[in-house]
Design a protein around this nucleic acid. Structure first.
Lengths: 327, 327
DNA sequence: TTGTATGCGTTATCAT
DNA sequence: ATGATAACGCATACAA
């Protein structure tokens, strides 16, 4: 079924059918004839042909570091809802934390003429910046603050402060399970916020009691073990994510430490995991779904106002969620 | 940048450039000239235009019921890896368990000329079958067995048997936390397998000790509560998914039951959750990532052999994973 | 081996 | 209000 056949069947020109489909600037009678033919044939216009002319694809590329993450899937969910509602489709690329793949997908998406890109930032290299510059469509960055681009991020620093202030009240010997400081939001901001909050309670953390994990439960377990080999008398383990905390808790169970009596533990992110753990995990709640929603809306706004780029930075709120794993 | 400009700059016809890009049926010298110009300009062919002619998009539509699920994200990961490696892109649509949306996305994808569709089946209605029939591109169904379509599914029934046989050895009063029996794989097959396995141990389950949950932790919690109000002396809770089991465990902790001494608990799926819970959860491991991989490969095979449709059913293996939550 | 000409299904411009 | 016609960027049958 093409517009030509419809036109012929309705006894009008294809231009009229096109107008019927778009402006609607058609006489009552012809409109009715066209309507009928379309209904009978079940004709739907070719998307490719339409796009060849209009030069936009209604496709949005979304690049995420991994798919099996509670926080990421919540954000993607927020994005997806907005996009679908607005008639856009979501192209999802997963890099499995491979920075080079991030750059690669950035290029692929750009070549495929997506109307916009949402990049979940983790570590942003020089490569990233160069590729971003070459890209013609709007890009917005999620979870990291990056100059020159619209971005949505959480207030990791102050969330860390808030959590640090609470935990600091009942902490003496603190160990920290962190992530690479190449990740500004999670690696640096959370750490610095926590340290600042603890300091306000006159608690300091010796750098020998800090470990870098790679975001996984296994690595949380391993580094907790390592930490206790170094300092067996730790009474507090602060983790950069809930997943890491889950690994730490596993280890503490294993060596028979009671949580929070012997050792208190905290996470970050308020994942499903956090309330399923025993004891339930004290953590920071971020409005991830909201972040995704805002991100998608911002992108759409940017797409629609082509020419005058609307650069915006949106910082989302957080809540401290105190459960059973802290004293 | 269009193929015309490249042709002009290279001093050849656009047909030659096109051939260079596709068949490669071009003389050395001209090929070199073209290569150079393309390298200089950074030209990439317009996808839309190419597709208008060739009528295929290199796009694969994937429809999933929800994104924040361990099993689903593992399968999607498997799919994604294969697709990306083969130069396809993945269009992801999430229905949030809304059956009508499933049908809607099936149509949308079809209209957008995706080359193939992977449908994560949950509940398949008459609507689904009718829409599937109208769709011209290959479709493969994941996690459910459906006649007339290629599908990949786990052996839920026998997995249930195996688990039932093990748990049956130490069970007397069994409660079950199930899901709707509209979901053949999870709702019926797992249940029937479990019951069969238990029966082999001369354990039977009273239907008054069964509850239907809606896949969530909250619902697992609520139905466990409901179950114990009915039968306070249950010594075994068998759940249709790990997530449901997590909710049940939460409730058992709350009422002070010791796991597995007082009550043993089992799940299904071997999610990350399963090893993070306290006690760690006995469950069934399914090769989800493998399922996704096989699904994507099967779809690609089907796309490439257009005309003679290759209908295949692949049933994946399972492992029983016995951890601390069972006796 | 190369170039010319045509068509893919739309939309937009221009007359009428 | 409507229809003819030209573009969009590419691939391909055919001619050379």
């Amino acid at each position: 079924m093409t517009i030509n056949e419809i036109a012929e069947m309705a006894g009008v020109s294809r231009a009229t059918v096109s107008r019927y489909l778009n402006d609607g600037y058609v006489s009552k009678q012809k409109a009715e004839r066209i309507r009928k033919v379309i209904a009978e044939t079940g004709y739907t216009p070719s998307v490719s042909a339409k796009l060849l002319r209009s030069n936009h694809t209604n496709l949005i590329g979304v690049i995420i570091p991994k798919i099996s993450s509670d926080s990421i899937s919540r954000m993607v969910n927020g994005i997806s809802n907005v996009l679908m509602a607005e008639g856009y489709q979501m192209l999802l690329a997963c890099t499995n934390n491979n920075e080079a793949d991030e750059v690669r997908y950035l290029k692929t998406f750009s070549q495929n003429n997506v109307d916009g890109i949402i990049l979940f930032g983790t570590v942003l290299t020089q490569q990233h910046y160069e590729t971003l510059k070459e890209i013609s469509c709007p890009v917005i960055v999620l979870t990291q603050k990056v100059k020159g681009y619209s971005c949505i991020y959480s207030d990791d620093f102050h969330a860390g402060c808030a959590l640090g202030r609470i935990i600091g009240k009942t902490a003496k010997n603190v160990g920290m399970l962190l992530v690479t400081d190449k990740d500004i939001a999670v690696g640096i901001n959370r750490r610095d916020g926590l340290i600042q909050g603890l300091r306000e309670c006159n608690v300091s953390v010796d750098s020998k009691n800090m470990r870098i994990t790679n975001f996984t439960m296994e690595s949380g377990y391993a580094m907790a073990k390592d930490l206790f080999k170094e300092s067996p008398d730790l009474d507090t383990i602060i983790c950069a994510t809930d997943t890491i905390a889950a690994g730490a808790i596993q280890y503490l169970h294993e060596i028979g430490k009671s949580i929070p009596k012997d050792v208190q533990v905290s996470g970050f992110g308020d994942s499903t995991l956090a309330s399923a753990l025993t004891p339930t995990l004290s953590t920071i709640h971020f409005y991830y779904e909201e972040a995704g929603k805002e991100g998608a809306e911002l992108l759409l706004e940017q797409i629609r106002s082509e020419g005058n780029p609307v650069l915006k930075e949106i910082q989302l709120a957080y809540d401290t969620v105190i459960r059973e794993s802290t004293r």
